[in-house]
Nucleic acid binder design. Structure first.
Lengths: 255, 255
DNA sequence: CGACACTTTGAAGACGATCAACGCCGGTGG
DNA sequence: CCACCGGCGTTGATCGTCTTCAAAGTGTCG
């Protein structure tokens, strides 16, 4: 296992978008590459907040545990995502989440104080972080709303759609990138509910067998998911999905 | 109705915290004071995004409507809060929410492009916005979690607690600042559920009659609310509430 | 007084959580 | 090579909670 990460990976991080080459390189020099094996903790609930991280490769589960032993996943982060954006500028001196690598993962780590300094100095960096944060806030809001207005089946469909787009999978057929247990936890529902739901959405343009997902009828799916989603035209997910469907070669329906 | 806002109000806005006096004054000069009567829209879903606002006085409801006529309130903003932080840095050229003044309200309005310029130039301003945004993201995450793990009664209790602290009310007794209909919508539950819930939490240290709320037994309440909240020690709300209870004169129990 | 908005209460139904049992698979050890 | 185990997922039955529909109560303001 090497301790380097390909430069082009670093250079394409959203955090550094639009930065002059030399600024970017200087920032990169301020960070340290860290590697975690699947199952290792990046940090735990209650640990002091020292660093800000960006994922170069892999996936990290952010979660909390309730006193009654329940585990709630707030986020599954992948390459390009930042860890701790929401924490570094808050009062709390300790982490409010557990961060657990669920695949072999490479991060780049920056000291919090160093980062704040650079935000103050570098307006482009500030706007990049602002953009990432505002995107996260927006998503969180929409999901809270979905949880209040949608049935489990609609939430699952909506999630699968976004999953497909986010990971740039082929909508004709892709494998779930995480365990169903994790996805259920991410969606704030019980594994049993999730499992049952998968059969229910079959009649709405989504086919799931084992870990294999494929979207068979976007019209149907859209009608089903969006019928009480408030973000009317905006559910841009559907448009993107449509584009993906067209882009991919018609796929030789691997029956 | 005057079109000015007291300078000390402007100067104490979180947005301008920590800024040099002259920087702050220059920023204030870049904004325009706007006044809205209760019931007026600041903007509507689908309107083009042109401005960023900070509330100087009053209250603004942010909400969306689902195709089936359901109204979902994502936020009720008060003095010091910003409107549109989550939108100005996103791709969408149009507002994703309705913003409605629910009291007579004064805002200060800044053009988006102007604001971005200033963020780029002024590191302290950038950090202020970053802080506000990260706070919002954090709250959104926690609330999503609450919606998944708490009963309606716990959510209502938790909400009333935060309401009291946020508005700096006397925990021994205060009036709800908005209609129950609005609060229910804000909590993502039906008015009927909310109404019924109010009687249920009576046995847990919270007394409600009409619009009057008072916290009678913090220990009991804390035990009830937090028993499956994952933010174990952190529910700093309880500590703050305790402090408020001590600070206020023992209150002549206005029976 | 009457109109209207807001809230409460009741009864029925839908949905998800919970508890329990079972099937499936990969790994370990005899 | 087979037996056993543990992690993971499915399925079934039951229960509690929230929503929904319906009706009645409360308050304010003309």
């Amino acid at each position: 296992m090497t301790h380097t990460v390909a430069p082009q990976v670093l250079h394409s991080l959203p955090l550094f978008a639009g930065l002059a080459e030399q600024d970017r390189d200087e920032l990169v020099r301020g960070g340290k590459i860290r590697r975690y094996e699947s199952g290792q903790n990046v940090f735990r609930y209650g640990d002091p907040i020292r660093s800000f991280y960006v994922i170069c490769d892999g996936a990290v589960q952010m979660f909390r545990e309730t006193p009654n032993g329940h585990e709630m996943t707030t986020e599954v982060l992948i390459a390009g995502d930042a860890i701790g954006e929401t924490e570094i500028l808050q009062l709390s001196p300790t982490h409010q989440f557990n961060a657990l690598a669920i695949k072999d993962t490479a991060l780049i780590e920056f000291p919090v104080a160093w980062l704040k300094d650079n935000i103050r100095r570098n307006g482009v960096l500030a706007l990049n972080i602002l953009g990432m944060l505002s995107r996260r806030a927006h998503i969180a809001t929409v999901e809270a709303e979905h949880k209040a207005t949608m049935t489990a089946a609609q939430q699952v469909s909506c999630f699968l759609e976004r999953l497909c787009i986010l990971h740039d999978f082929d909508p004709h057929g892709f494998d779930l990138p995480y365990s169903k247990t994790l996805i259920a936890s991410r969606l704030g529902m019980e594994l049993e509910t999730f499992s049952r739901t998968l059969s229910k959405i079959r009649g709405h343009g989504i086919v799931i067998r084992g870990n294999r997902v494929s979207f068979s009828d976007i019209e149907e799916m859209e009608a089903f998911v969006c019928n009480n989603c408030s973000i009317v035209g905006n559910c841009s997910e559907h448009d993107k999905l449509r584009q993906l469907l067209l882009k991919q070669k018609p796929a030789r329906h691997a029956t």
